[in-house]
């Protein structure tokens, strides 16, 4: 019985999120736009996330290189380490890890912010004052996450590749130019473009889930914490689902 209830709750949530996303497309991206708020959100969501994304990306590249190294040495293809790390970072690890870190930072903050506004009835007050809260709060944040995550991913990949270069040079010596050439010689548009485009969907998922969880928050301050927490969890899960769909789609399109 409980299982059925859970299923119903899950389906209800899914339907609500789909409706929320539909509302975003129906009303959120129509004029008039809240440009200043969008720029402000881009600054907060994008620029202020860069140090965290950069740090995690650097460590990720370094650690991945050091972890892959023994296996490649065992096969006698140590020279292929930049190629392996480059493809792994650009195709999968860079976008997904960046999106997860981004979800952890942004989805929670959006969920908590909108949730606290909801429970303190600021959103209702905004509506009364003639401002469309959906446009001002949800659309700007969702567009900001959708646009900023790809930029963050590209920069995060670059920093991760630099970390990988450091990782390669811990045990052996490779010039930066050779490392750079080796990485880009192995890459093709089929590696970069799908990875780049899926980050738009990751960003959109983080924004829409965070906003939905905050916008539909209830049960007082306790509900705010719950919204922040569930926003992170759900957006992370959605990121993995989108990743799964993306890999299937690129495979179908013959880009793999």
């Amino acid at each position: 019985m409980a299982f059925t209830k859970n299923i119903k709750a899950f389906l209800n949530d899914t339907g609500d999120i789909a409706g929320f996303a539909g509302q975003f497309f129906s009303t959120g991206i129509k004029p008039r736009f809240e440009v200043l708020e969008l720029l402000n959100q881009c600054y907060i969501i994008g620029y202020k996330s860069l140090p965290l994304i950069g740090l995690t990306g650097f460590i990720m590249g370094l650690v991945l290189t050091m972890q892959l190294r023994p296996s490649l040495v065992a096969y006698g293809v140590e020279s292929q380490l930049p190629v392996m790390v480059g493809i792994a970072i650009v195709r999968e690890i860079g976008p997904v890890i960046t999106a997860l870190i981004f979800a952890g930072k942004i989805a929670s903050s959006i969920g908590a912010e909108l949730g606290s506004m909801k429970v303190t009835e600021q959103i209702d007050a905004m509506e009364v004052s003639g401002t469309n809260p959906f446009k001002y709060l949800v659309a700007t944040r969702t567009v900001a996450t959708t646009l900023m995550l790809p930029v963050l991913t590209v920069l995060g990949d670059a920093i991760a590749l630099f970390g990988a270069y450091i990782g390669v040079n811990i045990r052996s010596a490779t010039s930066f130019y050779l490392f750079f050439i080796q990485v880009f010689r192995s890459l093709s548009f089929g590696d970069v473009l799908p990875a780049f485009f899926k980050t738009f969907f990751f960003g959109f998922a983080v924004g829409i889930v965070g906003c939905y969880k905050g916008y539909t928050s209830s049960k007082g301050t306790r509900g705010v914490g719950s919204s922040a927490n569930s926003a992170v969890v759900l957006s992370s899960v959605v990121i993995f689902f989108i990743d799964l769909l993306a890999v299937q789609l690129t495979d179908l399109l013959g880009l793999n």
Partner: peptide, 23 residues
């Protein structure tokens, strides 16, 4: 904030375009 955001976005675009160019 806007200047920082502009620099941030441009640097991201620069890296992306550089990657596309090299490939």
């Amino acid at each position: 904030g806007n200047i920082k955001l502009g620099a941030f976005v441009l640097s991201g675009l620069f890296v992306l375009i550089l990657a596309f160019y090299l490939i």
